[in-house]
Design a protein around this nucleic acid. Structure first.
Length: 197
DNA sequence: CTGGGGATCGAG
DNA sequence: TCGATCCCCAGG
């Protein structure tokens, strides 16, 4: 299977978000290799999106990675205890990213179970915080190049347009009009999607 | 320096 | 439904 190249990520964010469904995310660590199929994502577009950390093109130490080239990881700590994994999209100067919200576990299940302290397969990667724990993603992976050797994506399975559902994003009630933007994409009827909302 | 708030999760 | 827990950042 072929590794996704920079050109895949450096496109319009909503397109990248849709196209990420079905891709395999791989993380190589000392514990071993874990792989998950992307089944749920959300797009964040800094210039116009009140839910995005880089709303109004806000440039801070935390958001700066989103202003860089596509294909890098944006990982941040939320609620003081969980990490969220994003993939930076579009060209330089456009602060945009896609949040990975759920994976279907493909490989390294034993490693995931150990990290998550559960053997329930539907509870390993069915949420943004859970999948970071299962895949061994922390602040250390922030700003990592996904075109490198440690963490990267593979062309996994092709998802037909009719198998993709679109909804508003989860837990962004504070974001005023952006609350309703249909920027969450999931694989229809996939049992590994998060139980958000 | 200070304090309010958050792209979550799991227990009860 | 609610508490844990702490980084981030705006404001003074």
């Amino acid at each position: 299977m072929k590794k996704l190249e920079r050109s895949f990520y450096e496109r319009a964010t909503l397109e990248v978000a849709r196209d990420l469904l079905g891709k395999y995310m791989v993380h190589e660590t000392n514990d071993g290799r874990t792989v998950g199929k992307i089944v749920e994502v959300e797009a964040y577009v800094g210039s116009i999106d009140a839910a995005c950390h880089a709303y109004n093109n806000k440039y801070t130490n935390r958001t700066k990675v989103m202003f860089g080239k596509g294909g890098y990881a944006y990982v941040y700590l939320i609620y003081g205890m969980h990490y969220c994994m994003n993939i930076v999209t579009n060209q330089e100067t456009y602060p945009e990213a896609v949040l990975i919200r759920a994976l279907e576990p493909i490989e390294g299940l034993e490693i995931m179970e150990k990290r998550r302290r559960t053997e329930s397969i539907f509870n390993l990667c069915s949420g943004p915080g859970k999948l970071c724990q299962a895949m061994g993603i922390t602040k250390l992976q922030n700003e990592m190049d996904l075109c490198g050797e440690s963490m990267f994506l593979l062309h996994g399975e092709t998802i037909m347009p009719e198998d993709i559902a679109t909804t508003p994003r989860i837990n962004i009630d504070y974001a005023r009009e952006a609350r309703e933007y249909p920027w969450r994409f999931i694989i229809k009827d996939n049992p590994f999607v998060s139980k958000g909302k």
